[in-house]
Computed example of a mutant assay.
Amino acid sequence: MRHSEFWQVVEEAFGAGYGRSLAADLVLTGVGGRTAVQALDAGAAPRDVWNALCDEMEVDEATRWRYRRDPKARDGRR
């Protein structure tokens, strides 16, 4: 998962405004007590940040995995 894909799945899962707000404000224990933005800026892998965000937001496994797949698979193009 690249940074651009991270932002795409965040917006798909939570909505553009709310997703960006979560990424900027919600402290994620899974990435060292940083926000998603801070963790990405510090070099954390986007997939690790996505997992930490899902853990903190208690996203169910089906939803988590739906957005972690290849973007083409999410909309049925694959």
Rank of each mutant, 00 (worst) to 15 (best):
19 G>W: 03
16 A>Q: 11
19 G>I: 02
28 L>H: 05
34 R>Q: 14
31 V>A: 07
57 M>R: 15
12 E>W: 05
23 A>W: 01
38 Q>F: 06
20 R>D: 05
7 W>Y: 11
22 L>S: 08
24 A>G: 11
67 Y>C: 06
13 A>C: 12
11 E>C: 04
62 A>S: 13
67 Y>A: 06
32 G>P: 02
26 L>Y: 08
9 V>E: 01
14 F>E: 03
8 Q>I: 02
32 G>W: 07
21 S>N: 13
8 Q>H: 12
15 G>A: 01
64 R>N: 02
15 G>R: 05
46 P>R: 10
45 A>M: 09
17 G>M: 09
47 R>F: 11
60 D>M: 08
62 A>D: 12
65 W>G: 11
13 A>T: 08
58 E>F: 10
17 G>F: 10
39 A>H: 06
54 C>H: 09
46 P>N: 03
44 A>E: 14
65 W>T: 07
42 A>I: 00
59 V>Y: 12
12 E>D: 08
68 R>S: 14
42 A>W: 11
41 D>Y: 12
42 A>K: 10
48 D>Y: 02
24 A>I: 01
58 E>H: 13
61 E>Q: 12
11 E>I: 00
48 D>F: 03
37 V>F: 05
34 R>Y: 09
37 V>R: 15
21 S>K: 15
7 W>R: 05
53 L>P: 05
69 R>L: 15
23 A>T: 02
38 Q>Y: 03
50 W>L: 01
30 G>F: 00
37 V>S: 11
63 T>I: 06
69 R>T: 10
20 R>Y: 01
16 A>K: 15
57 M>A: 12
70 D>S: 15
48 D>A: 08
63 T>V: 05
27 V>I: 15
19 G>Y: 02
33 G>E: 07
53 L>G: 07
46 P>V: 06
60 D>Q: 11
14 F>H: 04
52 A>R: 12
47 R>P: 09
17 G>V: 06
31 V>L: 09
26 L>I: 04
28 L>K: 05
35 T>H: 08
67 Y>D: 06
18 Y>C: 01
21 S>Q: 14
12 E>S: 06
25 D>Q: 13
14 F>G: 00
15 G>H: 02
9 V>Y: 02
54 C>M: 08
58 E>K: 13
57 M>F: 09
52 A>M: 01
15 G>L: 05
62 A>I: 07
10 V>I: 06
